[in-house]
Nucleic acid binder design. Structure first.
Lengths: 206, 206
DNA sequence: GTCTATAATTCGATAGAC
DNA sequence: GTCTATCGAATTATAGAC
């Protein structure tokens, strides 16, 4: 993602470096635990410069959080509304999409979820996600399959539980399973194929 | 280091009040975001008194985290090693156990997971959990069922993904599903019955 | 044991030189 | 734009009276 800066357009290079450093540190340590000095050091610049580009720690954080939420939603809309794919195909695509995303951005979901808990107000700004999801073709297919016997929310929980949760709990799971990062990623790649099969089996069991 | 020269009745002692207040505030806001003043206020005592009983914010936190981890493991050992229950029965008992626990302590898992990410060193102290799990009768039954065709870790991920993840993501899920706390808890109660059925279906699909 | 007051430190933000 | 130096607010921890 962060390519070594080949060409430095003089007006945006430093700003971009700071933003990338901020994303890295905020995501790892959370808002409260990160010091603006850490971000400056990570970006290889001075503390004063951070406040020159972004007026405050909080403004920089809001920017990072907004882009994190976008990163989490980017590309999903197309999968959700594909009129030519079945429910199972969409589940397969969602699993693959998120597993590839989270292999590279492992602590993105834990970051988003813990910061939302710490400050739920941040959420309400960016809840276009709710409409995107509930009005999607995917959700209609899910409702048609569950046929009011079970709340479709259960299967949202299941998809994300199977796909995202392993990354959220990866520090624990990697110790329990004695897996290196590479081995853990390989496990997650296996899940790309298994999750749609498992979801099918679950949907048929109701 | 070695204190506790005086023994006190733990009933409504000040020490206990502080510890409960600390657990509440730390769990809600995380280590970095909580101020010792918040804990003191929540406990209805003075800030100085907190440092009188517990030497520092960090020592108090370590205590709270240790008890949180214990709370998460308490009672699980007996379920895991019950020689008279099948794998499916154990899954059913685990799901019920954790759902009841997390209905009351909703942000316990997010607290544990985010603090471990922020400071992985905290984990290594308390990883007796790993042995409890891997040497349990439950894990042997799981290995026997997957028959080396699939890493049993996948099904650990699945059980906890189906059971714990909904609580971790509850701020988001409750908004998406427009559920009150009561309605959300009712959904989780439904999952007590469904999770073992779903897990069975998944295990048969391999 | 419990309080008030304060010391000591950390951290976000700014002033001002270049 | 970028730096050094520093201010001011917030916060942990302690001293000392009762």
């Amino acid at each position: 993602m962060a390519k070594m800066e080949k060409l430095e357009t003089a007006d945006s290079s430093t700003e971009e470096k700071i933003k990338e450093a901020a994303a890295k540190v905020f995501t790892q340590k959370g808002f409260a635990a990160t010091r603006t000095r850490d971000i400056a050091e990570e970006a290889g610049i001075n503390l004063a410069l951070l406040n020159y580009y972004f007026r405050s720690k909080e403004k920089l954080f809001d920017l990072v959080m907004m882009e994190s939420l976008q990163k989490f939603m980017l590309g999903v809309r197309d999968i959700l509304n594909d009129v030519n794919s079945s429910l199972t195909e969409k589940i397969s695509q969602l699993a693959s999409h998120y597993i590839d995303l989270l292999k590279v951005n492992t602590d993105l979901p834990l970051f988003i979820l813990s910061e939302i808990r710490a400050n739920p107000a941040r959420l309400e700004a960016n809840m276009g996600a709710k409409e995107i999801l509930l009005q999607s073709n995917f959700y209609k297919q899910l409702e048609a399959t569950t046929k009011k016997k079970v709340d479709p929310i259960h299967f949202l929980m299941n998809i994300f539980g199977l796909t995202v949760f392993p990354f959220v709990a990866s520090p624990l799971l990697r110790i329990i399973g004695e897996k290196s990062k590479t081995e853990f990623d390989a496990l997650m790649d296996e899940r790309k194929k298994m999750i749609p099969i498992w979801m099918d089996a679950m949907l048929k069991s109701i």
